[in-house]
Design a protein around this nucleic acid. Structure first.
Lengths: 136, 136
DNA sequence: TATTACCCTACTAATCCTATAGGTAAATAG
DNA sequence: CTATTTACCTATAGGATTAGTAGGGTAATA
């Protein structure tokens, strides 16, 4: 997982914790979560464009959750930031791509293993919604 | 997973299938598995240095399995090629590293999730020994 | 209208990935 | 002993990605 995705998760968790408190500024999130501010700016924008967040400008502005905390999962955030969750592109559902050195996918012996890994991983990451994550 | 690791796995599977047939040349593996030969050369050397393979020089030489196919798993190969299997360095067992932006690991809410993902993933990859993989 | 915050473009330094080139050393066949 | 075959070693290099930084422009609010 890239730092970007980790930052995104930490920022979302931060906002989930303050859900209902109104907008939170980029600077506050950056400082409290130890994220470079300019980098965070781009990340939050991406999360907003994907519909996971909303924002308000001007004094008293900032970012805030637009969905319920139960409706946003680690899988959502990671897919947005890093793309495929699968270890091999040929077992990815959302970003499928054929392995160019593979002769025949149907007889590829390692594919089954990594298909299972992908499925289990996605299951766990989909289970991990923001509300569950902050409930500890 | 890097191409390097995927190549390594395919090469090991290839050698596991021919276990007992004597040494297989780099060229043969490269051609049959569609792996760039020079790249494969470095990969096989690394696998040998890690004790997963042995080799023989000169005519009739090549690489061959030195362990039983049940004793080498996907986890072994992947760790050797790509390093940590964990998505976050702070939940890695063999390559643990603190997240530098993390204030307190004990209260880090996302750590638990990715710890579970790591454990399940490693379990599956350790289960996937070469003999199991080629038994299909 | 001053302040505050969001939005946008471009750039960069460092690292990693995926190889390639060219030569050395050892084993074997004849 | 020579030629051939094969693994082994060193160095390098282009491209992609990552993780940012710099410097402003634009929009909303008090």
């Amino acid at each position: 997982m890239s730092k970007k995705a980790k930052y995104a998760i930490n920022a979302m968790v931060h906002l989930a914790r303050k859900h209902g408190d109104g907008p939170i500024t980029i600077r506050d999130i950056a400082e409290e979560e130890n994220i470079p501010q300019k980098f965070l700016e781009a990340i939050l924008l991406e999360l907003k464009n994907a519909g996971l967040l909303s924002s308000k400008k001007g004094k008293g502005g900032g970012y805030y959750m637009i969905k319920e905390t139960s409706e946003v999962t680690m899988a959502d955030i990671m897919r947005l930031m890093d793309g495929p969750i699968a270890l091999l592109p040929c077992v990815s559902y959302k970003h499928y791509e054929r392995c160019d050195e593979c002769k025949d996918e149907n007889t590829c012996s390692i594919r089954r293993v990594f298909f299972e890994v992908r499925n289990k991983t996605v299951d766990m990451l989909k289970e991990a919604s923001l509300d569950k994550v902050i409930q500890e």
